[in-house]
Each structure stands twice: as C-alpha cells, then as structure tokens.
Design a protein around this nucleic acid. Structure first.
Lengths: 216, 216
DNA sequence: GTCTATAGCTGGATAGAC
DNA sequence: GTCTATCCAGCTATAGAC
C-alpha cells in the first residue's frame, strides 16, 4: 500500500462511496432476492442516479463481485472468531452451528457465496480470498479431531451443506434441520473414528453399481 | 375421465402439442439454465410463434408448472422402479445412487424440483403429486431398515441432498461426492441402529448454545 | 462526479387478420 | 389455431451538459 498512502484520503472517500452502494445492494437483495437486483433500483435506494453507479463500478457483475467480497470477509471473520472451548468435538459442533446460523440468517448471502445463481458471474480471486481462509480454518478444526482423509473432508462438506440447504429450502426461519447439528457431528465423528481404527472392507454389494475405488 | 372420452382425440392432439412445447422448454433450460427461459426463444425452438404458445399456456408460470409436472413424474417413475435386491441396506444404497444419478444428470431438473429458483412460482398440487409418491417410497425404504424417527428422516434428507448439492456445485460431471454414497449410508445406518438400541444422552455441552429439546 | 435524457435491447403478453 | 405486428415495461449502459 505504498502508492496508496500518497492519495490515501481520496481513495478512502471513493471507497466509502463504493461501500454505500454495496450496502444498498445488499439491502435490496435481502428483500427481493439475488436475481432481482437492478441498477435502477440500486441507484434509487442509494440516493443517486444510475450513471453515478457506473462512476464506481464498471458493470453489474463488478457490483456482484464487491458484494461477494464483503460476504466472504464476513464469513471468514465469523468463522475464525475464537471458540470458547478446548474440546475438539465441541469446537467442531460450535463451528457447524456458526456456519448454519451464518447461512440461514441471510439466505441471499448464502446463495451468492456457495451456489452459482448469477449466470456468467464468477468472483474474482481477490474477492474469493477470504473464503479460502475460512475453509482452511474449517479443515483445521477437523484436523484436531484427527480427521484428515480427503474422503472424510468431502463427506463433511456434504453433511454441513445438506443441513443448511434443507433448513433454508424446507423450513425457512425455523430450526427443523439446524437443531440436528449436534447429532450429525457425533454421527460423523463416530464413523470416522471407527473407520480409521478398523478400515472398513466393503462386503459383496448387491447394489446397481460395481465396486468403487478408494482414492488416496 | 368420463367427459374426457367424449372429445378424447381432440384433447389428445392438444396434449401432444403441449408436450412438444414442454419438450422444447426442457431443451432450452438444460442448455442455458432455468432462469434463461424466454417465451421468444421457446417459440423459436418449438418452430412456432409466441402467440401460439399462449394458445396452450396461460402464462410463463403455467409452462414452468408443466415442466415441473413432467420432472416429478420422471422422478417418481425412476425411484419406484423395482430394486434388484431383497437386502434392505442394499435397497437403500441403490435408492440413493438412483437419486444422485437422477439429480446430477440434469441439474436444471434438480433445481426446478428441489429448490425454489423461480421467483413467484410454486408448483400446482397436480404437478406436485408424483413427487409425493416418490418421497413416500423413500420413506418406506427407510422403514424397512427400521428407521422411523422423524429426526432421522430429516437427517436422511440432509445427507442425500448434501451429496447431490456438493456434487453438482463443486464437481459437475465428476464422481467426487457421488462415490461417497455407500459410506454415507453405512455411517447413517450404524448411527441410527446404535442410537435406537441405546438412546443417546447428551453430555454437558461446552458449545455456544443451550441444551436442545428432543422433539417427538 | 453528478446530473438529465436516452439509446438499444429484451422481456411477457396481446390485437386482429386469416 | 396460427400468423404478423405491436404494445408496454423493464433492463444495462452511455452521451453530454454542468
């Protein structure tokens, strides 16, 4: 940030104007859904006009990118806040509870972060960076529970996103699936511990598929 | 269908014209995504003009509803085809494998059936009926595995949709999550069997939430 | 940087001839 | 039922004055 310090306060004012636009964008999106965001409505909500929007953002996708960047930062901040326990299992449970709460309290944010609902939009690597940090922290919480098998990590993401997805899709505002967090975590831990103590050898399956290969 | 028999062949021709439009709609949606469907493109693809579309459907939502109805029928047909095994566990595994394959081979169909991606659209009860039949069959496959606790049923939907969601979102066309099906089923069965033999009593949690209530 | 005004396009849906 | 032609609304984005 050496050259940034030269015209720092100019850049700061520009940045705060950008932030105000992103604020308004999130308000609109929370109310009407991600796809319903329009530049006109956004300008109206922000108290400016549409050309002014384009003074700060090159395109609508650039706005989505800034929204993504803020959401990713919030996600990383929330997930890396200190956990009050030393017990690895309890930290894991608390992490999922935070994750579920983070997602369910703002479904639009969840959609933008973890699904791909905007045709043609992909977040820039800068906007994506904080999300990587958070996902790495999640990997570490699993590691202190001695879970490092890549297949188990994939199972973990399936379990947690499944809870979130069902909660948002089928019981918005309720706790029907989020209240299952503790049970799911214990199920998962029990399975991983036993399967690593005595690696499971699949018996002859009568299913419709052939045997599967166990990747490293 | 008594009064339908009177003008049966007229209705049949009308129905086949409707089917052709729905065919074209699914082709477009598979290629460009659910939200990208437009009446103009649809008419062009179907070899007719836009007013002709409105001779068969009252609105765009009515088209989505017909698309939903077909998808639900396909879903029910596929999921209720006979399973080649008598083993309850193997039937359960095969069911998930079918479910995952059904969803991943046509993500747009999955989205329309199981998520709510069209603002303002809800399927009519007639279109939804076949889906109910399929979900009930799923409930029965769990019941023969002695799984009837409502909480376990909810866990089950979270597990299966989690696998599908991760597979579609993060490895489209691959098998990174779908190949975990058998392990996930066994993890779930093991957990349910032990938890019903000896109901789990949660110890003092050091997590961030208070105790949870175990609903019936 | 901010505005007024508008270009240029695409969308759903319809009027009216045939 | 099917067409041509069109209405009207909404959208992103820009030109040009200030």
């Amino acid at each position: 940030m050496v050259e940034g310090a030269a015209s720092g306060w100019r850049e700061a004012r520009r940045q705060s104007a950008r932030d105000a636009i992103v604020d308004a964008a999130w308000e609109l999106v929370r109310a009407d859904g991600l796809a319903a965001l329009s530049i006109r409505d956004l300008a109206k909500r922000a108290g400016i006009t549409t050309p002014t929007i384009y003074a700060y953002f090159d395109s609508k996708h650039a706005i989505y990118d800034a929204m993504f960047g803020r959401a990713a930062a919030e996600f990383a901040d929330r997930m890396t806040e200190p956990y009050g326990s030393e017990n690895p299992r309890d930290v894991l449970v608390a992490g999922v509870e935070r994750f579920v709460e983070f997602c369910t309290t703002d479904p639009a944010r969840y959609q933008l972060l973890f699904q791909r609902p905007i045709p043609g939009f992909s977040p820039s690597s800068e906007s994506f960076a904080p999300a990587v940090r958070a996902l790495d922290a999640s990997r570490q919480r699993l590691a202190v529970n001695r879970i490092v098998d890549p297949r188990h990590l994939d199972m973990w993401t399936a379990l947690t996103t499944g809870l979130v997805d069902q909660q948002i899709s089928n019981d918005p505002g309720g706790t029907r699936w989020s209240s299952l967090t503790e049970e799911v975590v214990d199920m998962f831990l029990t399975y991983c511990q036993t399967s690593q103590l005595a690696p499971r050898v699949p018996g002859p399956s009568k299913g419709e598929r052939g045997g599967r290969d166990r990747q490293g």
